[in-house]
Amino acid sequence: MSESNPAPTRSSYRVVLLGDQGVGKSSISLRFLRDEFHEHNAPTIGAAYLTQTLKVGDKTVKLDLWDTAGQERFASLAPMYYRTAQGAIVVYDVCSKASFVRARDWVKELKTQAPAGTIVMLCGNKIDIPDGREVSIEDGVQMARDKGLIFAEVSAKSGQGVKSIFQAIAEKIVAKDSHSANSAPPQDKGIRLSSNEKASSGCRCSSQQTA
């Protein structure tokens, strides 16, 4: 568990979800989980840590989804969660301007504090609410373009777009990982064999995606 060696095995990746309380972080990951394998997953009450496998190219990867506390009083704790993550999804509520402003702060914080190379995604939730929108899709696209993030809008309630955000971030992480695995010397010393884990995979996602 030493922090000097935080990288998990290369087929398992950590993705943290950041955002204000109430924007639906855990609903998004729960939706992702339930849509994929209803029959295997007994309804769970614990939503702070979830795990799901998905296919990226010909490779099966495991995503560990870490929910973070969104309340202001826990704001200082977030770095502990994203410090060892390969990806971060910053979630805001399209019906709450305040949550969008907060999302901007999260993105800024990640850019300065998270390890270089963390894939960051911006995600607007609750697009199923017809009249409540306070943040336009253009605002979201604009912020994503400015900061160089993947962007998507989803509805955790209807499930719209949920799977594709995880697919997109997984592809981006895998692509980055295979790239760095090919160029950098292997970190693991000792006995671990990992030569077969460098399976290459195409990355189909662009830096900006709209739902």
Binding site: Q21, K25, S26, S27, L30, T44, I45, G46, A47, A48, W66, D67, T68, A69, G70, Q71, F74, L77, Y81
Partner: peptide, 10 residues
């Protein structure tokens, strides 16, 4: 939909 998130767990 009631579930324990990190905001609850901590």
């Amino acid at each position: 939909e009631i579930c324990i998130t990190s905001d609850d767990l901590i």
